[in-house]
């Protein structure tokens, strides 16, 4: 009876292939809709040089003619994808620097920021979840709940401002954005696991509490936590934009903000594709890992 549904399930390689196709399609559509939004947003077809009184009318016309290719968003996107497939992401409209160069010089800053932030947020979230479930002391529970509530209600931009004013470590902001999600999710998982009969049986057998916690609570929770890890990467990316802007960090988030203000189509489309790819890849890895853990 149990054999039939298992046989209908795709293999691991099949799931990987499905994720790859889904990632590619989402990527292409995400990039296109990003470009479309920018194209039809206000201020797309202007240039700051329009206000420079040194330019003659003929020069301004010539400047606008040079950018006429970007007005038809379909042909722009097709050309962009063709070039991107060969590793050429175009040249920034506002900075006149190849987009790949801009991304290469800034990726390190964002990677460090997000990496440290994720490490901090996860350590804090898991630490508080373990403390509040394992010891179940009112003081620990109240403190962790209050801290979690405050962290959840504070926008990343406000925390960034506080960190900047106190000259604190900037990755703290990302950590604070990640922490409440990890804490609540992990705590709920641990609490459910503690209610399982195996825990009661192990306790009756006189197994040490530490071992019960590790074996019956933490071990079954790691698979759903991997799924959350995928989501937390996209949360961290989202928080990186205001953080880098407010704290003046030359990362991809700040580049995205400046590109949005300058209506820089090649940069914005490239960043949309990169962030979408990373987010989808993180989710896909988490998904595949989750499935693998279950089977």
């Amino acid at each position: 009876m149990n054999g039939a549904p298992d046989a209908a399930k795709p293999s691991l390689s099949g799931r990987v292939a499905r994720h790859a196709v889904s990632l590619l399609l989402t990527l292409l559509l995400g990039g296109f809709f990003g470009a479309l939004l920018l194209r039809f947003g206000p201020g797309f077809d202007v240039d700051e040089r329009d206000l420079d009184m040194r330019y003659s009318a003929q020069s301004r016309e010539a400047i606008h003619r040079e950018r006429a290719g970007d007005r038809n968003i379909f042909s722009f996107y097709v050309r962009y994808i063709e070039r991107a497939a060969q590793g050429d992401f175009g040249v920034s409209r506002s900075l006149a620097v190849p987009v790949s160069e801009l991304i290469a010089t800034r990726a390190g800053v964002t990677t460090r920021l997000i990496g440290l932030g994720l490490a901090f947020g996860w350590t804090l979230g898991l630490g508080f979840a373990v403390a509040s479930v394992r010891w179940r002391k009112p003081a620990v529970i109240v403190f962790s709940e209050t801290f979690c509530g405050v962290a959840l209600s504070l926008p990343a931009a406000v925390v960034a401002l506080l960190v900047f004013l106190t000259a604190g470590p900037v990755s703290l902001v990302i950590g604070i954005a990640i922490f409440p999600r990890v804490f609540r999710f992990a705590r709920d998982l641990f609490e459910k696991a503690l209610d399982r009969p195996q825990v009661l049986a192990a306790s009756a057998r006189g197994v040490a509490e530490r071992w019960i916690f590790l074996r019956y609570v933490v071990r079954p929770a790691w698979a759903p936590l991997i799924a959350l890890a995928g989501v937390s990467v996209s949360i961290a990316f989202g928080a990186a934009i205001p953080v880098e802007v407010i704290c003046d960090l030359p990362g991809l988030g700040q580049l995205a903000w400046k590109a949005a203000l300058a209506r820089d189509l090649p940069v914005l489309v490239s960043l949309t594709l990169i962030v979408t790819a990373i987010t989808l890849a993180a989710n896909a890895v988490a998904d595949v890992a989750l499935e693998a853990a279950r089977t």
């Binding site: 206000p42 201020g43 077809d45 202007v46 240039d47 700051e48 329009d50 206000l51 203000l261």
Partner: peptide, 13 residues
């Protein structure tokens, strides 16, 4: 208050 490209668009186009 408008961001600069939107403002330029309004006053020049």
């Amino acid at each position: 208050t408008l961001d600069f490209p939107s403002l330029i668009e309004r006053i020049t186009k």
